[in-house]
Every structure is written in C-alpha cells, then in structure tokens.
Design a protein around this nucleic acid. Structure first.
Lengths: 189, 189
DNA sequence: ACGCTGCGAGTCAAGTTGTCTCATAAGATT
DNA sequence: AATCTTATGAGACAACTTGACTCGCAGCGT
C-alpha cells in the first residue's frame, strides 16, 4: 500500500488542507503555520510536517482548493456569452474566499516564485480563452475589435477586479456593459 | 525637549522607516519584523520596540512613505488631462514599490482594520477626484457619460491595475485609450 | 490474526519574541 | 564649559515557537 492510497494519509491530508484554507480565509496567509493548521485540523503537529515540511507549498495547495472564476467554453452569440461569463466572475469576486485567494496570489507572487507561476498560469488562462473567443467572434463578423484581443482580459476583468479588491464594492451591470462595449463595435447593436 | 523634536529620536525613526520599506519591497510584508528592521536600520532591537511596539503599524507607516499614484488637479481639455494622468498611473504601476504597496494593501486590508481604512481612503480619493473631474467635463459639454461617474475609476484604473498586478505586464496606450473612450461620448472626436 | 505504516504525543535543542535594566553619549540649557 | 535630560545600544531574561526526532499505538490491507 503506497502512501497516496492509504485512507489515513488521505484523511489527514484533507483535514490539513481544509484547515489551511479556513485559516487563510479567516486570518490571512500569515495564519497558515504548522501549529495553527494542526490545531484546526485536529491532527498532530508532526503530521503536518510530514505532509508539508514547508508552510508555503501548503498555502499554495490550500489556495488551489478554492474554486476560482474562469471563462466557460464560448457559445454564440459571443456578446451574450461574454455578458453571462463576466456577470458570473463579478459575482464570484464578491465572495470572501475568491478575494482572499486572488489578492494573496497577486501579493505573494511578487516574492515567491511558485506563487508567481500560479499567478501567470491563472492570468494566462483567462487572457487566452477570452482572446480566442473574441478572435473567433471577429472572424464570424460579430464584432470589430478596437483593442487587440490580448488586451481584452484587462479591459473586462480589470474593472471588476479593481472594484472588488480596491474599492471593496460589488460590480454593477453598467460597468460590465461598458467593458463589453469598450472591446469594439458589436454588429448587432 | 519633547521626543518628537529630539534629533536622535528622529534619526532612529527615519532609519527604521527606511529599513522597513526596503524590507517590504525586497521580501514582502512578512519580512517587516522587529529584528530584521533593527539589523537593517543599524539600530538596537529595543529602539524599534520603543518606536513601534507592534510591527503592523510600522508596516503601515512604511507603506505610506512610498509615493502612490494619484490624480492631479484637472485641467482642460479633460480628455487630454485624463490621458496624461492615466499614462502617469500606468507608468507608476510598473514600479516594484508601487506594486508591492498596492497589492499588500489590497491583501492585508481583508484582515486588518487599519489597512482597510487606508485602502478605503486611497480608493476614495481616486474615485472622488475622477468623478468630480468627469462631472465637470460633462457640465461643460466635453463628454456625455455612458457610465455613472462613480464607475469611472474602476473603468479606467481597473484595467491598468489588473494588467500590472495579475498579468504582470506593462499597460500599452491602446488600453488607456479604450478605457477613456469607454467612459462616454467625447464631443471633440 | 498478522504485518505494515501513518499517526498522536511527547521530547529536545535552537531560535525568536517581548520586556526590562543599565551605562553611555548626544543634545539642550545655562 | 559645565550640567542636566533622555534616547540609545548592549545585554540579560523568561516565555514561546520552530523544526527534528522517537516511540507506542491503532487503522488498514492481506
């Protein structure tokens, strides 16, 4: 029986990850220490060290357990799809855990290489998917882009992200509509 | 002689603040501890405790020593002013220390009340100034706003902030132009 | 029932934290 | 120049934290 299938091992692992995530959400990344995680998880301190000798990879994995907003596979009309997806992201950004994970990512990525890799991955997925969807939409004649499609993620998600993390207020639909309109000229106005 | 005018007191204070700021920029907010600050400042550990018994208010003051991007008093034509100001902010957001301070602010504000107050202040100033400038511009007939002026900060600074902190790339002028255009219909197109 | 292995509890040295004391010297006051 | 004031550095100190290790136990697959 290898470690990875031992139910005791998996049970501890889950308890530790849950405790780490809860601590992150309640008290921030600095609260994710071996002692606090062990207490919260109802697990021996040595067990936490056995699973994650370093606290930082644990934080990274705990953050990965929080469902982050992504863009679903595009459907047509693209404008409706975009409106739906951006609204979903706006709603997600109002959740404490999503805010906690994204600001922790943006912050710690400045000094931690692994966090930076995760940040780049996250940013890349959003930018890629949106760019691809918009390029397709343009090819289909749904929109004439004013911006290069690589600017689309910043233009649409940026305002909502700023609203959520800096202004700490919900995004209204007018902001979403303005962002969508800013991408280019939609054919079916 | 009161403490606040004693040159020895002021010298220590400055050395401590500088050391704290350097540590924040080089290694993140968790590096701002009494010991590390004392070492870096060339000051006794007890002195740091005397000036700031808690590490967090020290971090807060150290962050305040970093010049953050703000909007200058508006001039006409408003569109030119806005272009100039947003370009300046975009350039500021490429500086490591501005990124460090803003992401640290956004992150720690979620769990620290003093940080949250500072965040709200910062967000408020930007939103207020921009809203006032745009309301004036609309009154003068320079623009017909599509968005409420309270959405303007998120719409313009948001994309640059996202570009800088999540995508970790410089803002190009096309993004700034698109954001400006998204605010409404400018009369002198 | 047996053997394996992850676990909790506990021990330990090394390091950290926050507090306090004291001699010193920088700076104000005359 | 002499004197008083007070911030400082060095260091002592107890309480606590960190990371590594040991060992008996019990959950689990065979």
């Amino acid at each position: 029986m290898t470690s990875e299938t031992d139910p005791r091992f998996l049970r501890s692992r889950e308890a530790i990850l849950n405790a780490a995530r809860e601590l992150l959400l309640e008290s921030g990344p600095t609260a994710v220490t071996h002692v606090q995680v062990a207490d919260r998880a109802g697990v021996g301190r040595a067990t936490v060290y056995r699973h994650w000798p370093q606290a930082e990879p644990l934080l990274l994995e705990a953050m990965a357990t929080v469902p982050m907003p992504f863009l679903d596979r595009p459907t047509t009309p693209t404008r409706e799809w975009l409106r739906r997806e951006l609204t979903a992201i706006a709603r997600q950004l109002e959740l404490d855990d999503v805010r906690a994970v994204s600001t922790t990512l943006a912050n710690t990525a400045l000094w931690d290489e692994n966090m930076d890799t995760r940040r780049a991955q996250f940013a890349g997925i959003l930018a890629d998917r949106l760019a691809a969807a918009l390029d397709d939409a343009e090819a289909r004649g749904e929109i004439t882009l004013t911006l290069t499609s690589r600017n689309a993620a910043a233009m649409t998600i940026g305002p909502m992200y700023y609203r959520s993390t800096i202004e700490h207020a919900p995004t209204d639909s007018a902001l979403i509509e303005a962002a969508i309109a800013a991408l280019g000229t939609w054919s079916t106005d």
